[in-house]
């Protein structure tokens, strides 16, 4: 079941990315392309994690939770940057020293997984990657 979900997600992500690149050659690509890229990246990443990680029965809850976090941080982080253009580009609101939209992308998409994913990998390693003999 997880494998079927994983490969379907990889396929859906690849199709979204192909559409995004295809649309880039047309005028509609300027608006629709980035959103398709975000959807494609989230689906592809989720599918890859499922294919790679979810093979054993134990610790699935933690992995599903991680998966949800990865999808949400990609969609919400990039989506926030795409959906809310800066109202005052010359003097934007700052968050941790950066314009808010930039801070959401850098800290949310870039820094948060730095702390979370390696830890989840280590915690789920015995059952997911190194199954018992």
């Amino acid at each position: 079941m997880p494998r079927a979900f994983g490969i379907t997600s990889v396929a859906a992500g690849s199709v979204c990315l192909a559409l995004a690149y295809g649309l880039a050659f047309t005028r509609r690509g300027v608006t629709a392309g980035p959103w398709l890229m975000v959807a494609g990246l989230a689906a592809l990443s989720a599918g890859i994690i499922v294919l790679g990680a979810m093979r054993e029965a134990k610790n699935r809850r933690m992995l599903w939770l991680t998966l949800a976090v990865v999808v949400v941080q990609l969609v919400a982080g990039f989506g926030f940057a795409l959906a809310y253009p800066e109202r005052n580009p010359q003097a934007p609101q700052l968050l941790l020293g950066l314009p808010v939209r930039t801070a959401v992308v850098l800290y949310g998409v870039g820094v948060l997984p730095l702390l979370v994913l390696p830890l989840v990998y280590a915690l789920t390693f015995e059952t997911q990657v190194t199954p018992p003999e």
Binding site: S45, I48, I49, G52, L114, P118, Y121, V129
Partner: peptide
């Protein structure tokens, strides 16, 4: 930006 995602995905 995808550094940690990629490292963990590679491992998995």
């Amino acid at each position: 930006l995808p550094l940690s995602l990629t490292t963990s995905m590679t491992a998995w």
